[in-house]
Design a protein around this nucleic acid. Sequence first.
DNA 1: CAGTACGCTGTACGGCGTACAACGTACTGA
DNA 2: TCAGTACGTTGTACGCCGTACAGCGTACTG
Lengths: 256, 256
Amino acid sequence: MSPDRSSAGDPARTVALLWRDPAAVPRRGPRRALDLDAVVAAAVALADAEGLEAVTMRRVADRLGVAPMSLYTYVPGKGELLDLMLDAVRAAMPRADTAGLPWQERVAAVAAENLALYADHPWAATVSTLRPPLGPGAIARYEHELAAFDGCGLGDVEVDDCLTALLTFVRACARDAAAAAEAVRDSGVDDAGWWAAAGPVLARHLDPGAFPRATRIGAAAGAAHGSAHDPVHAHRFGLARLLDGFAALVEARGRS
Amino acid sequence: MSPDRSSAGDPARTVALLWRDPAAVPRRGPRRALDLDAVVAAAVALADAEGLEAVTMRRVADRLGVAPMSLYTYVPGKGELLDLMLDAVRAAMPRADTAGLPWQERVAAVAAENLALYADHPWAATVSTLRPPLGPGAIARYEHELAAFDGCGLGDVEVDDCLTALLTFVRACARDAAAAAEAVRDSGVDDAGWWAAAGPVLARHLDPGAFPRATRIGAAAGAAHGSAHDPVHAHRFGLARLLDGFAALVEARGRS
DNA sequence: CAGTACGCTGTACGGCGTACAACGTACTGA
DNA sequence: TCAGTACGTTGTACGCCGTACAGCGTACTG
């Protein structure tokens, strides 16, 4: 197995870990050299510094001055460690106090908070969560973000739908941005360099007559953003459209 | 390296491969046992059948009755193979003829085509593309999808922005759906089973007083969808909001 | 017909997650 | 007080991965 994805193990054990269930800590045996939080913190620090792919059991153990296999007494496997990392950074998210502002601004603040999370921890956008890791961090964040929709006039289910759509979109943008940054870091070739190398070959094959819109609009978009793909702009634009869509729904509910 | 991501190698070589540049095929030496398309087809078939994680150079070679290292005469590395797989399935996308329909329906059709692509090839939503693999399949698809916005009244750059937002969202939904399906397949625990195992432990820690919205709305949403997260519903809902947002932009441009 | 460019292959390296058994420690119950 | 036992820690090892490299045979070139 090579889990760049979160836990597929025993759900009860995973949830107990996330909430630091004291029943999971035994009384017999030698004193533990570390605790769970130290392990999670080391893994998060490693991911922040060198990316998710640097987070291996061996390297996390190295950071803690411990043999790789020791980690398995704190965590059932790498998947659960990823769950714990995610919940930890979610718990630590700053939550703006937007009480009193209109719901549109509160929801926009939620998007900004998430964008900031992914700016600080790009790897958090790329972990594939097989099951929602419902730890204290995730729940607290969910509660806070739902509150942004208070009084907007939508029903409970619709509020959840809107939040899901918003978070899905923001995370997707963050993932694209992280991938682009990783490409530059790993290959040492930035966007301009990539185009300088690929462009001539592409030009030999790409017939503007066959693909009029692709060539025209692709060039226009590239010129407008100074690059083939500008993740920041893509996020801002898409978010604005999504918020307009939410507003249309709110208005429809208000009329009925 | 463990590239579940696309090529980080020489951009010119990658583009030449994508377009099957004949200059890349040499004249000397023994006859080749395979051709590039056979390699790509084998990899796609493997990914379709067993998921992206099953696509290893050894297993692709097995399928072709060839030693693993032989593949490296067709492809510089695994990253480029992923690029080629992605371009291949994009080239094969059915493209609905929506001429004459209003732009909203044409754009909705684009979303549906992409959703169908990811239904047939869930792995395609999970490949992380460091650089856009601008092969013939990607370009043809781009041209087709841009055409859906013909006559909607937006400028070239805005059309590209809308399309990007749409594709980003659809892909994100497909990725979540693929992750959920993978979770069930790998762990043998479906959504109901997962909740049966995790629920009681979660209930022990989750205080409804501390998280009133999370508990109430989470329960309501779960009951409405019959599960904690319904990817199909999330896609339909978010897409509708996004299209409403596009419509608002079109209207604003029409007024000015 | 010699030279050479190239396809194919076996072996090997360094990495990964983690199973397993050995060993030592600290608590439990008699 | 002193076994007995539960448990933390560790070294070794297995089976995967991507792919570097060198050897070998083939088919084209001059």
